[in-house]
Write a protein that binds this DNA or RNA. Structure first.
Length: 278
DNA sequence: GTCGACTTGGGCATCAGATA
DNA sequence: TATCTGATGCCCAAGTCGAC
């Protein structure tokens, strides 16, 4: 029963031998979506907690659906669904595209396709927009925009919100830091606050990094560099100990990232494993 | 090839209700 | 009463796709 439980009970109470039904053919996950949609549109409305739980489940089963699509189904706001998706980052399948309410798929990051299109245009300036679009995996409209940008001497990838994934490491770190700082388990204990202070002070914002580098006097550069490498090695050892203590909580990719730091620092012969230095 | 309709995610300001 | 949280509306740049 996806919808109409009350109508069925009323029919049964009235002793009616049959009731008109509409069959649904599809996957269980799609049946769940239909059920949530029905409950938000009529009948006994779902509580906010129930709608949030439903949105979480739909995010897990339909990760490629746009936030607005899920918001419409669950009766939540788009911003709430967006926040929920951020919270569940890592726990839900990653999708490079979003299917909107119009059923069209749109990429989250078109930089790769744009760069590919710019290469194809340079190689064959007389190729049609559709031919390049097919080859690059983007729409003809986007190819046209790339071509106009190249004619104006601009970068084929617009600067702004949809930056290439390679440039998103900074914001991800900042987001992870924000989550840790809002976690009561850390925020409300002395040792947790101490750890947060150490993590915060050891993560210079990208925009301040260049300024910090320029502020190092030439005669101190060697010692500062050596100390930074020792700090990195100490943090790497700290990461290894944390991972060993709680292997079940180690995020995917953590080991390889820590290993990369280790390999880059060990090659300099630095490293002190007794305490993490910030 | 071009254009317009419609959509996206994100930022920002504002408001309302819950909670301390 | 102050603060927090969630919802809403508006705006923006960018993307897709059908019609012409």
């Amino acid at each position: 029963m996806i919808d109409g439980m009350h109508r069925l009970r009323v029919a049964a109470a009235e002793g009616r031998p049959d009731i008109p039904v509409r069959f649904f053919e599809g996957l269980e996950r799609d049946a769940f979506v239909l059920s949530v949609q029905s409950n938000t549109r009529h009948g006994l409305p779902l509580s906010r907690a129930e709608r949030t739980a439903a949105a979480s489940r739909i995010l897990g089963s339909h990760a490629d659906w746009a936030d607005r699509m899920i918001a419409e189904v669950t009766g939540l706001s788009t911003k709430t669904v967006r926040a929920l998706r951020r919270e569940m980052d890592g726990a839900i399948p990653h999708s490079a595209t979003r299917i909107g309410r119009d059923g069209r798929a749109r990429p989250l990051d078109s930089a790769t396709g744009r760069l590919r299109a710019s290469e194809l245009i340079a190689a064959n300036p007389r190729a049609s927009l559709r031919a390049i679009a097919d080859e690059a995996g983007i729409s003809p409209g986007t190819v046209r925009d790339v071509r106009e940008r190249l004619r104006r001497g601009e970068d084929p990838v617009p600067a702004g919100r949809r930056a290439p994934a390679s440039q998103q490491a900074g914001p991800d770190l900042a987001r992870t830091m924000e989550r840790l700082m809002s976690d009561p388990a850390l925020r409300l204990t002395e040792s947790g606050r101490h750890l947060l202070r150490m993590l915060t002070s050891s993560l210079p914002p990208a925009e301040q990094r260049d300024q910090l580098v320029r502020s190092v006097p030439p005669h101190c550069a060697g010692r500062v560099s050596q100390l930074a490498l020792e700090c990195a090695a100490a943090w790497q050892e700290f990461a290894r100990l944390v991972e060993t203590a709680r292997p079940d909580l180690a995020p995917e990719g953590w080991s390889s990232a820590a290993g990369a730091v280790a390999s880059s620092t060990r090659s300099h012969g630095a490293g002190r494993a007794d305490a993490p230095a910030a």
